[in-house]
Nucleic acid binder design. Structure first.
Lengths: 141, 141
DNA sequence: TAAATATATCTTAATATACGATATAATCTT
DNA sequence: AAGATTATATCGTATATTAAGATATATTTA
């Protein structure tokens, strides 16, 4: 199989999997909120400047987004100890929970699929995800 | 490994993979537009009523969304032959292309990852995606 | 001490999203 | 054939989201 054909198939399957297995009753969370929360999750914490840069918006906008998420209880902030000008934005547990509902596969759905398959297939999937995410991190991070 | 732990790991890896490998310079496409285009892609075509139901909005809203996407050239419509009241909305090639940029992994990034890994690892990934998407279809469709 | 940095707030404007009211055309029911 | 139902389209209205310039405050650096 040609690599490009394989990539095309993987991509189609990727979207099929998400389409079928994602959470469907989600709290309303805006697109930029999701992006912001996810950046924080993947990086552990973020300054307003980080967020502005990552979202490709002005610092004012990033600050406003953050303010709204703080109000909703999805993030909190702590002032930097080395440089008190800096504010580090971190996820609350509620924020993490809400983020997962917007970005992850539905646990119950995924479980249903995995328990109904041959255990060595499930193991293959486990391994494949580990390899692919590791590969992605090595190559692109 | 406990199934729930495995699911947690898969989910974390799932989001890591997407975070690292998705297209990053995307044309501006609204959240509802993406959802609408994707519904059409996964189903081949859709009526306004289908779209309204899937998006959980009124038919007026679905019709307006569709109108805007038609204007952008991302979808087109054809009147049903059995029932001419019905309009079937289908993706244009441009629509498909734009949708893929918002929902799929970046081909070049994915390729970079796959060619740098052991070929049997790549084969494992190919197989795993096929199995998982097939499993999802069987269980949840 | 002045300049630079980091963030916060306010104001303004554009865009996204939604739905009720209304209208038209097609199909179904009586 | 007429009336009712179905499917969609358009218009008007409203709210939420998004964005950035102007301005302000606090902290750090030169």
């Amino acid at each position: 199989m040609q690599i490009d054909d394989m990539i095309e198939m993987i991509n189609e399957q990727w979207t099929d999997i998400y389409y079928l297995l994602h959470y469907t009753n989600k709290d309303n969370l805006t697109h930029q909120a999701i992006r912001l929360l996810q950046y924080i999750e993947k990086n552990g914490e973020a300054t307003i400047g980080d967020l502005a840069e990552h979202l490709a918006v002005s610092h004012n906008t990033a600050s406003e987004h953050t303010k709204r998420l703080i109000k909703k209880g999805l993030v909190s902030k702590k002032r930097g100890s080395l440089d008190e000008r800096k504010v580090f934005v971190v996820l609350t547990e509620e924020g993490r929970h809400i983020l997962y509902r917007h970005t992850r596969l539905d646990k119950e759905k995924l479980k249903k699929v995995l328990v109904q398959m041959d255990p060595c297939d499930a193991e293959l999937i486990r391994k494949a995800f580990a390899i692919l995410s590791e590969g992605a991190k090595k190559c692109l991070r």
